[in-house]
Design a protein around this nucleic acid. Sequence first.
RNA 1: GCCGGAGUGGCGGAACUGGCAGACGCAAGGGACUUAAAAUCCCUCGAUGCCUAGCAUCGUACGAGUUCGAUUCUCGUCUCCGGCACCA
Length: 840
Amino acid sequence: MKERYESKEVELKWQRIWADTGAHNTDTDPSKPAFYCLEMFPYPSGKIHMGHVRNYAIGDVIARYKKMRGFNVLHPMGWDSFGMPAENAAIKNKVHPTKWTYENIESMKAQLNRMGFSYDWRREVTTCSPAYYKWNQWLFLKFLEKGLAYKKRSFVNWCGSCETVLANEQVIDNKCWRCDSVVVQKELEQWFFRITGYAEELLKGCDELKGWPERVVAMQKNWIGRSEGVEADFAIDGSDEKIRIYTTRPDTLFGATFLCIAAAHPLAAKFLSEDKLSGLKAIYGDVEQKEGVFTGKYAINPVNNEKIPIYAANFVLMEYGTGAIMSVPAHDQRDFEFAKKYGLPVRVVIVQEKDGKPSELKEAFEDDGYLVGSGEFSGLSSSDARKKIGKFLEGKGLGKVTVNYKLRDWGVSRQRYWGTPIPIIYCEKCGVVPVPEKDLPVILPEDVVFSGKGGSPLLDASEFLNVKCPSCGGSARRETDTMDTFVDSSWYFVRYCSKKDEHPFTKENINAWMPVHQYIGGIEHAVLHLLYSRFFTRVMRDLGLFGFGEPFENLLTQGMVCKETYKCAEHEWLFPEEAKDGKCVHCGKEVEKGRVEKMSKSKKNVIDPDALINRYGADTIRLFSLFAAPPEKDLEWSDQGVEGASRFLNRIWSIINKNSSSASAVGQIDMKALSPQSAGLLRKTHQTIRKVTVDIDREYHFNTAIAALMELINEINPFAPASEDDKRVLAFSLRSMLLMIAPFTPHMAEELWEAMGQKQSIFSEAWPQWDDELAKENEVELVVQINGKVRAKLSAPAGLSDDAASKMALDDERVKPFVEGKEIKKIVVVKGRLVNIVAV
RNA sequence: GCCGGAGUGGCGGAACUGGCAGACGCAAGGGACUUAAAAUCCCUCGAUGCCUAGCAUCGUACGAGUUCGAUUCUCGUCUCCGGCACCA
């Protein structure tokens, strides 16, 4: 055994052994309980970053721990490898996306292996491979058969820079989630998935997500956005036509003083010239301004036959409800502002107190209250009125009670090359024809030109584009749009259950592993990916592929990896090395120590995992990133903290080195003959096993588990064995410590395990067990409080009765002065911990 | 505005169902070893006060409350972070 710990040598050695022995391969095994540990797969950008390191380190500890606890663990990894960066690289550097992507995968895979992550690579999923995306296409056809995929013309979020359509979820603050350019509305023919058909079920299912962070469930619920209300018909004065509006406040129906329709509403085009409407459409969805145009028409309020003007307004959304609203300025702030702007009347129909009087409003009164000026409904509470007015409208055939969702159908078409071709053919005679299953996969042609200008390169790929119609054999044209990459990631977790050469929907494989027991990934996917996956899983269930609807039983959203930043007034963000002695190296100005921010290239506070691995080794990085914070919280990267982790590993190394002669001691420990020193170490060891196990099992609090191991090391360090029993205790303690640290720092654990004379991999060992009896302290520190204040600490035998503890406390010299001459009202005893004497 | 979450030493963070606040680590200070440095090891480390080997008082954002006892529970206030936001 070497004197010094050489991380690189040790780590490469064990990585080679693991690969050679197939240590991380998993096959189904009915004799053991299954555990599916999954981390969100990365986009293969070419280099891993600290966020990946943290995410995958957490997953790896869980996988290795569960394996030692006797589970058959599935721990796969793959590549979310379709998407725009590959295409952008093709345009910029003239590299084909295929070559670029696969090279990136190779280098990232090497990095992941260098971190010592325990993946079964036989199950690797690469979404850009035809073998994978064939099944995207197959699922698309099934969606089509079930009416869950359809085409419609609609306004879409369009990113001019990426030249593609974006899903609502990909628009952040009206900007593209990838490139930050402003998103505009554009009308296009698009394929949609009918996720709204599952809105209710997805919402109800939220309550079963017991193993998910509350906030993620809240975000999903919020996104689905269910509301109850009524749809009501307003007749148009002097016409047979009607306008159907949606409202959640039918109790305010008598207060409607005008009506607004979306600019894209079919009737708007009838009443107004395209000229006038285009002005509204241009500011559609603009939160800053509310604009409207009077249509010249009037509507009849169905409850009081009042004539009210109809406006077209930019703030009314065509996608939500019916695309038309009744405007009640007294009880809706938006309508209030609109009414003030255009001089429309405000009529109060809800008052706070029963039988209250309406008064002049400075802003809309949006709370519930009691109805006034509402005919037969006056006097009712808002909630009663909502029900009664709903029924009234239904009874008269003027409307109905309905449920609405903010959730929209999922637009999946992308005007891009690097994605799954949508398996559709357009024939002049037969129309839209799905590609027959036997012709799948529709392969993305390799031989295309990336000009970077306008539209998808597929539009110029004539061999791909021109096909025979599968139905009539006539000449036809392929769909050139490709699928949103979120389709790829909506079912990849099912693909892992089977090996590469097996059919992806082999039921016994899926049932052996799914649902995922522990999913780990970033909070940024709280709605997008997780909602789509829940939707897909339900559709796959309804296709009869398996019997469950929720894909992820437990979800852990790890925090971001952050680091301090430096800023100069003139040169903005600075690299740490640009801030010498608090001065900017470029201009000499004072450097401002910025906030701790998420690592990002633009803020110049990233740390390169490669550099750290070379300097400290993978185990040190793993240990630090698990120790510095609990997994769900943000982690602040600290160079000194890494040093500390490295020191700790060196300490372990030298302790094993120093004690190599005792380390292999075996045999029964004679409990009765133990020295106090040995008894103490034995007790501490059992306590540590208990603490580490409980901390990992409860919320994966690795930081406190590691802290407990550090305490144990601190106690082992000065231990000098004098007898054979001492050696046996020490050996037991060292072995337990290594077993417990193994999931965190697997390479070092294997090496030291071997150095202790063990022949098998440490991961074939069972997790150590503790004995509550041996973990018990025989002396406890009894805290004595008088009126809640600590006055003394006594050493007492464990298992003392309440009475004996009270007596002991009262007899103590330090306690006496505080109770003398006072009446003892009460004595509270917490067993083995505390006595509180209440004296007045 | 609405919905989440958080606020504890110089710093990252501990404290299980209400029972010793500050585990563990980092930084800092002191010491040992060394020709010297690094590495390593040992000690100190919330604040204040005092008759300074000790003891007392204060202390978990702030203000109340419940309780023998509150970082933990309840109510109110402030600040910060995240998400959603014309969804009728």
